[in-house]
Design a protein around this nucleic acid. Sequence first.
RNA 1: GCGGCCUUAGCUCAGUCGGUAGAGCACCAGAUUGUGGCUCUGGUGGUCACGGGUUCAAAUCCCGUAGGUCGCCCCA
Length: 412
Amino acid sequence: MIQAIRGTKDILPDTIDYWNYLEFTAKAVSESFGYKEIRTPIFEKTEVFSRGVGEGTDIVNKEMYTFADKGGESITLRPEKTAAIVRAIIQSSLYQQQPITRLWYFAPFFRYERPQKGRLRQFHQFGAECISSPYPESDVEVISLAVEYCKSLGIEDYKLLINSLGNEQSRIAYKEVLIKYLLENKDKLTADSQNRLEQNPLRVLDSKAEQDKAVVEGSPNILDSLDAESKLHFETVLSYLDKLGISYAIQPRLVRGLDYYSHTVFEFQHSSLGSQDSFGGGGRYNSLFSQLGGKETPAVGFAMGAERLMIILEAIGKLPQPEPVADYYLLAADSKFIPKAIEIASALRSKGKKVLTDLIRRSFKSQMRDAGKLNIPYVVIIAEDELSRDSLLLKNMLNGEQNEILIKEFLK
RNA sequence: GCGGCCUUAGCUCAGUCGGUAGAGCACCAGAUUGUGGCUCUGGUGGUCACGGGUUCAAAUCCCGUAGGUCGCCCCA
């Protein structure tokens, strides 16, 4: 048997309603903030991500689906959206045509990893980006969009962690004290973290290894290194969140795995996810545009993992009830009435109804069973007696009542 | 890339001491000829993941591979 690629999953009809629900809700919430959808190609030149996401990140180092196309060009299936969106905006000069660009997406992404709970090689994210504002209001807009989405889905018992990496000067200052501290404790760190110390020292803070945690415990706090501008930005974000009644926890060791963040970073966590407890995250990325060859442009965004949202919704019993596939089931009491059934079905559809007919010439009883099993609310029975009076039987499957009704009346 | 556990019908699983397979659910049909859900009866359905080895004989024992799952790393 030919199987789907490891780490990929078919979305079959039994779960498609859940996916549509996640996507339609994402669209509705995004539009309530005035965001427009953006779709970009699922693959890009590899440099979009290596330069955008950062050479020092795990995503670029070991998780990208990269291959050479027939022309020898290095192509990568997108592991995330932000770098691709920035590329698209620069290419189309979108950010030069309007003062603020607000975008959302719900799309598949690819990372080459061993699959586990809530982690696939092809996965889906809902995300939004707010481009061209350096002010805290845009950080807050993006966070509250994400919060509204959770609220719309009925997810309430999550944690929002927030931190600030500060502007570039603050980060340089912090890196200095951090590196100094880590070097003093280098021999207590895991080999992994000793490596990170060279490549991207901030990410040592992210380590989940017990051995590293002890060192990280005593590390200098990034918030102490923020300069006045960075501190003001962060405090303003927090005060807006307070005003909006959005609760959060400041987590000074939250740095996130992508290189492009500055100032505000945040992450959403939920306990139902096992060891992958984060289901969304984001932050400000003021330097990404210039890194990808565009005009320096402040921006902020977030992404949420659809598979993880699905796990949460299932755990808290908030998956939507699937709708019946049809409003009416056209039942031909005998094969000779099938043409009539098809005719009436067609007339109903042109009135905007969802209609099902039997296609395998089943018996009366069998069609009845079929309609019952599919939870279809009404069965239209076409049979000898009634047809001789130009009428049919309309049966309400919920209460079992049925009435004879003239076909002309029924189709009016 | 590494590790634990797992792989028998569409699904969830039994299968003893090695003797070439069963149940429940689902599906299909029927229960005085035109009525679903409940109940009863019957039926369809298996490359026992794949490849090799041991044996007279392998779903069962051994080796390998693939896949799943949960972790590690990291992330959504």
